[in-house]
Design a protein around this nucleic acid. Structure first.
Length: 907
RNA sequence: GCACACGUGGCGGAAUGGUAGACGCGCUGGCUUCAGGUGCCAGUGGCCUUCACGGCCGUGGGGGUUCAACUCCCCCCGUGUGCACCA
């Protein structure tokens, strides 16, 4: 039996090395970013002086109760290698991770486990920290926080207060000199008082209540009666974005009803133009820009008159809808059972019987209707029918059509809506383009062409417990009052029962009850807001969890500052455009990495807040995130047996049959599918399993080498062995497996030098462009070459270790130490490619587009010389058939392309 | 239906107008070993031919531009994402 050498790079040794360096980095405060001034320095003086800042940001993680699988760390490993690479290039890197801990999932998890959300949230954060810390990520630990921390919540409320106290003045010039700026509402009041800005009724004659109403129509955070999506099953109101297209709640899949409610909103529409314009200057993926433009952008459509329950109303039909549904009837699903009664000429008995849900109605209608289905979406919840009752009247049925824009404000008025001209002027069922649809509709007198923004204001209140309370109280007459900053934070009260009051999911007559209203001692308060002690009632809504995630990247800069939400000095140092040439005039975080699922909402909301805070003079940059990178997802193979049941993927065996892969579970053949990683598909792999079986460095190398960072890719456990072997070979090249001591040669041959230089050049470019997969491939090539040498040259070993450090930091630190160095690699300068003395390269000779000859030539060869050399080759002469070439294209030193008289063409 | 993205060996992928298949997995052969595993060395797109050299074909399909196309343009097929009923 052969014993494993005592210093082989095994998972056990990897773990020892990894824990050793993680401890050391933590003790030395290795990843402390240094602030421009004040409290947070790096403690070592390393970063003092002229270092340029570089901010690397991960999307704010939500600490789920389920823990992480191997897909989650992908983005964190990516930002970590960028951070480490930038540190080696001499930047003062700010890289921190906090937690987005408010929100419905946290509340639901807590309810499910019967505990207080604060307790479960803290436990989940601790678990996530543990799983991530074993990866050796280079976060500055001093800058971490959770949105639920009272000190953080204080500033979230403070920002809300600024939005509430501001309005948008389209004529006022903002700091960058352009028109349109948020201003304190006090300025507006002055204009009303002085008469500079007119009001319908003179300002001084208005009651306090009237003034308050008027100002509300200007404030950036305002309260108004608005339609909300009431979900009795959850007992909460949801934003449109949280309602599925089937009209169910995104979380829980309960029915959702439209209700009128007094609600807080954010006037994001005031910023629509600027949110659109500034996209151009950002270094974002074009697809994300397109999605934002699509969301914000102008939409052409038709303003039409509708008849609703005998009353005339106006509606806007966007051109995409007009295109696919040229004339139509819209019915809320709640009316669906009555449809046959309302239907002109009674179209069939068979389908109105027993059709109580839209789904049932639809399928009954589809099966019985004699006419062809013109269009169907998702096949179930809606459909368009042509030639109903001899008329061209498509019908639209949906769970989610109680649209105020069609005047359908509540079930009581919602009989049906129809386009006036339908009977007189039925439109053809199909057009060639949206433009044609809108043109024909306009010509047909259906309505008037109009452009609108689609973007609507952002609904900002929730009837939940686990969110930030509003810094708002109401006096006895119902007028709202902002609490002064000195009253912040407004903390959540303790409640005997913090669950939202849910109802029968089908009970559409129910109304939301905010959990905070249950604590009477908290709601009813006596305060002195500057005019003596008075009685007030607190606002009982809470903020959505977008609130905390809208500005967290700012708090990383000065996480413990009690006087500012972000310290102005640090803002100017880290985010201002003047410190980062690349980000030009927009400024912001240098690199933001996360999933594309936040392409619209989170990024739009954060940009909006950032712009308001910029207008008000609190920030020096116009945009929050200069460069955005969307990483792909880690997907996984899943396996089903002959009955279609999922079998544990980890126990599936791959065999090689007739040159192809076949898969077996317990001796029986199974099918391979492709899907999300998770418990239901029995294909989940956790980082903890990877640490144990391979170590963190192998795991990191594997995740970065699987494919391009921006693409989704399947997790393939057996491929990890390749990454493991690479690190083992590297270790063995530099360290003796018997003694553990470095065994390198002080000499380096010319061939190795050349390859080293080429590798440095290539890897540097790949790292800069965030292509770790090709960087790793190049390092493996170098490593394989070093393996073939009798002894590894020290210079190559050190270059190798430096270049791999950002991706596999622990093993590289260990090798660096064993090579005789005493200080961390974290700040070692990134290697630079030297000049290679010898400059031979391979040139290719093509005849009629095909490679016919390869020549070894000096890299500096001239065009004439290369051409002459190519033409003198026997093989080339043969392919030219002894004749002069018709044409010669010579691009030294790489290629000579010849056209023969036989096959070639020439112009 | 509209918009965008993508399509390369048995698998993940590399090459962005200039040597297609880097690198890894898997597979084949050899060495080490009692054996398995690990490790090391060599080979590995298909077809033809061969001791060998070599030749032909090949990046979803078809057409085009070019001395030269995985790469650029047009058409088709397929896959994925977004949009639609919220506006």
């Amino acid at each position: 039996m052969i014993e494993t050498p005592s210093w082989r790079y095994t998972p056990a040794l990897a773990e020892k090395i990894e824990l050793k360096w993680q401890k050391k980095w933590a003790e030395e405060g290795c990843f402390y970013a240094a602030n421009a001034e004040g409290t947070l320095t790096d403690g070592q003086g390393r970063l003092a002086g002229e270092r340029k800042p570089y901010t690397v940001l991960d999307m704010f993680p939500f600490p789920s109760g389920k823990g992480l699988h191997v897909g989650h760390p992908l983005g964190y490993i990516a930002t970590d290698f960028v951070s480490r690479f930038k540190r080696m290039q001499g930047y003062n890197v700010l890289h921190a991770l906090g937690f987005d801990a408010f929100g419905l999932p946290a509340e639901q998890f807590a309810i499910a486990t019967g505990q207080h959300p604060r307790k479960t949230t803290e436990e989940n954060i601790a678990n996530m920290r543990r799983q991530l810390s074993r990866l050796g990520l280079s976060f500055d630990p001093r800058r971490s926080f959770a949105t639920t921390d009272p000190e953080y919540m204080k500033w979230t409320q403070w920002i809300f207060a600024r939005l509430y106290s501001s309005y948008y003045d389209p004529d006022f010039r903002r700091p960058d000199g352009k028109k349109g700026c948020a201003r304190p509402i006090k300025e507006l009041v002055k204009e009303f008082e002085s008469g500079k800005r007119k009001t319908e009724k003179p300002w001084e004659e208005m009651s306090e209540r009237e003034k308050s109403e008027l100002l509300n129509s200007f404030r950036l955070a305002y309260i108004s009666d608005s339609f909300v999506n009431w979900c009795p099953g959850l007992g909460t109101v949801l934003a449109n974005e949280e309602v599925t297209r089937e009209g169910k709640s995104e979380r829980g899949n309960w029915p959702v009803y439209r209700k009128k409610l007094r609600q807080w909103s954010m006037r994001i529409t005031a910023y629509a133009d600027r949110l659109l314009e500034d996209l151009d200057g950002l270094d974002w993926p074009e697809t994300v820009k397109a999605m934002q433009k699509n969301w914000i952008g102008k939409c052409e459509g038709l303003k039409v008159a509708l008849e609703v329950a005998g009353k005339g109303v106006e509606a806007f039909l966007p051109s995409p809808a007009l295109f696919s549904h040229p004339s139509f009837l819209v019915l809320p699903s709640s009316m669906a059972p009555q449809l046959p009664k309302e239907w002109p000429e009674g179209t069939k008995e068979s389908w109105k019987q027993g059709a109580t849900s839209p789904r049932a109605l639809f399928s009954a209608f589809k099966s019985s209707h004699p006419y062809p289905l013109a269009h169907s979406m998702d096949g179930i919840f809606s459909g368009i029918f042509s030639n109903v009752a001899g008329k061209n009247v498509p019908v639209f049925i949906s769970d989610y059509v109680s649209e105020p824009h069609l005047g359908l404000e509540g079930e009581e008025d919602a009989k049906f809506a129809r386009i006036h001209s339908i009977d007189q002027n039925p439109l053809p069922a199909a057009f060639d383009s949206q433009e044609e649809a809108i043109k024909r509709a306009e010509e047909g007198g259906l309505g008037q062409r109009e452009e609108r923004y689609r973007l609507r204001d952002w609904l900002f209140s929730r009837q939940r417990y686990w969110g930030e309370p509003f810094p708002i109280v109401y006096s006895e007459d119902g007028t709202e009052h902002l609490l002064p900053d000195s009253f912040l934070p407004v903390n959540l009260p303790s409640l005997p029962d913090y669950k939202p009051k849910s109802f029968d999911p089908e009970d559409s007559s129910s109304l939301p009850v905010a959990p905070l209203a249950r604590n009477g001692d908290w709601v009813e308060v006596e305060l002195d807001l500057g005019d003596g002690l008075k009685k007030y009632k607190r606002e009982t809504n809470t903020m959505p969890n977008w609130a905390g995630s809208c500005w967290y990247y700012l708090r990383y800069l000065s996480p413990r500052d009690d006087n500012h939400f972000v310290n102005p000095e640090e803002d100017r140092y880290f985010l201002s455009p003047f410190h980062n040439k690349e980000s030009d005039e927009l400024g912001g975080v240098d690199l933001y990495v996360g999933g594309v699922e936040h392409a619209v909402l989170h990024l739009l909301y954060a940009r909006f807040w950032h712009k308001v805070l910029y207008d008000l003079g609190y920030l020096s940059s116009r945009e929050p995130f200069y460069k955005l990178f969307n990483q792909g997802y880690v997907q996984a193979y899943a396996y089903t047996d002959s009955r279609g049941q999922y079998v544990p993927a980890s126990q599936v065996e791959c065999r090689f049959e007739g040159g192809e892969e076949a898969f077996y579970f317990e001796g029986k053949k199974v099918n391979r599918e492709f899907g999300k990683m998770g418990k239901s598909l029995k294909n989940m792999v956790t980082p903890d399993e990877m640490y144990e079986a391979y170590g963190a460095d192998t795991f990191r190398v594997y995740e970065m080498s699987m494919g391009p960072l921006s693409e989704s890719r399947p997790w393939n456990l057996k491929d990890v062995a390749g990454s493991q072997r690479f690190l083992q070979r590297l270790w063995r090249n530099i360290v003796s497996e018997d003694t553990g001591e470095a065994c390198v040669s002080e000499e380096m041959d010319a061939k190795t030098r050349k390859l080293l230089n080429r590798t440095i050049k290539g890897v540097s470019e790949d790292m800069e462009e965030m292509r770790p997969n090709t960087a790793i491939a190049k390092l493996i090539v170098l490593n394989n070459h070093l393996t073939s040498l009798p002894a590894c040259p020290r210079e190559a070993a050190e270059g190798m270790v430096k270049m791999l450090f950002p991706i596999a930091p622990h093993i590289c630190e260990e090798l660096w130490e064993r090579l005789g160095h005493t200080s961390t690699l974290s700040f070692a300068p990134w290697p630079e490619a030297g000049e290679s003395a010898e400059e031979e390269t391979v040139a290719v000779v093509q005849v009629d587009g095909k490679v016919r000859c390869r020549l070894s030539v000096p890299a500096g060869i001239g065009e004439r010389d290369l051409e002459r050399l190519a033409l003198s080759q026997e093989a080339v002469k043969q392919w030219l058939g002894g004749q002069e070439p018709l044409k010669v294209v010579c691009k030294p030193p790489k290629i000579v392309s010849l056209v023969s008289r036989k096959g070639g063409k020439e112009k």
